[in-house]
Simulated assay, not measured.
Amino acid sequence: MLWCPDKTKNLATAVKEIHKAKQRGAQLVALPECYKYEHNIDWEEVPSGEACRALSEAAAEAGVCVVGGTLPERDGSALYNTCTVWDSDGSLLARHRKMHLYDIDIPNKVTHRESELVSAGDQITTFVFNGVKIGLGICFDICFPEMVELMAQDGCSLLIFPSDFHMVTGSRYWEALGRTRAFENQLWVALVGPARDPDTEYKSWGHSMLVDPWGTIKAELDENVGTILEDIDFNVVEEVRKQWPVRAQRRTDVYNTVRKSS
């Protein structure tokens, strides 16, 4: 998906792409991280903000579930990098606030302090659409296996991660993390790459991809040009879990990943 500094145009592009995906047979549409505009400006409340209203209307008009990438959310004095999910009737189905903030310093390559801008969320987020339980994470969240394991324990068959990896880290970790999380948790993983501005130097790692429970890449975009449209066979989840029964044979008497109440 293309990005430009004009948030109105970006929202219009997102709505257009939602309808195009529906025309091609999509039931669920996932947008990129920060598709609307850079997440250090124009904070909005959920669900009353401009982007929220646009996505709600688009989901209802198209009759699809929309995973709305991320937007800059304001809640009182707190700011978050937030993914909203809109049901096919336009109602708010889920909201995920990025839990793991990207603070990194690679000498002479990249320095980033997301924690200087936003607060961290504290909730594991799942939702059900068309009878399928789906888990949500944002970008750096995928680097933490405990979070993904808890979503798998909750019964998720698909995880969706709108993401915007830096070129330095994305080229090394993007595919490895997507395939690993899918295989070790025996579920589908969708990595939604960033929107891009064709008029500036491209500095984010694209390559949106869909990975099956065997860890096989079923579809991938080249630098996020175009749209992935794929049927997901959830029977494969049970097939893998029966053939490779690691979930049933975990030594919970010795170790376990336990969710703490917030």
Rank of each mutant, 00 (worst) to 15 (best):
M209N: 04
R247Q: 14
I138P: 04
V168C: 06
V192Q: 11
A190F: 07
C139N: 12
H207M: 10
N256T: 11
Y102W: 07
V15H: 01
P32M: 02
A12V: 02
T70A: 12
A21E: 13
E223A: 15
C139V: 07
I104E: 07
M167L: 12
F161R: 07
N108H: 01
L191F: 15
R250Q: 15
A176W: 03
G155N: 14
S262L: 13
S88E: 14
D122L: 02
T111R: 12
G63D: 11
N256S: 14
L28P: 00
R251N: 15
D253W: 14
E57S: 08
S208R: 09
A248N: 14
K109A: 08
V46C: 13
V225I: 12
A176E: 14
V85P: 07
T180I: 02
V46W: 06
M209K: 07
Y173E: 09
E184S: 10
N224L: 10
A26E: 08
R181I: 08
Q243Y: 09
N108C: 00
I106G: 05
T216Y: 01
S171L: 11
P5M: 08
A59C: 06
I228T: 06
P5K: 13
A94L: 11
S204A: 09
S115Q: 01
T70P: 07
V118W: 14
M151G: 06
S77G: 01
I160K: 09
K98D: 11
F165D: 07
L229K: 13
D122I: 03
W43I: 02
R74D: 00
V246L: 15
K22H: 12
F127S: 00
H207F: 14
P194R: 10
A62Q: 09
T84C: 14
G137I: 03
P198W: 01
V46E: 08
S56E: 08
E44Y: 04
T8G: 05
V128K: 13
R241K: 15
S77C: 04
A248G: 12
A14Q: 07
S88M: 05
D212A: 08
K7L: 01
V168K: 06
T13P: 00
R196F: 13
V66Y: 01
I124T: 02
W43N: 07
T227W: 09
L31N: 07
V225Q: 13
F234M: 09
A14W: 01
K218G: 13
N81I: 05
N10A: 02
F234N: 08
P107T: 04
T169M: 11
V132S: 03
P107W: 05
E175A: 05
D75A: 10
K16C: 09
I41G: 00
T8I: 03
A54M: 12
E116P: 00
I104V: 12
L101M: 06
S261A: 15
K98M: 15
K98P: 06
W214S: 13
W205K: 06
G63V: 10
D253V: 12
T216A: 11
D105P: 00
K203W: 07
R24D: 12
E50Y: 05
P245T: 12
W174E: 10
W188P: 05
W188H: 14
D199T: 04
W214I: 00
L150I: 13
P107R: 06
K242I: 08
R250W: 14
D253A: 15
C156H: 06
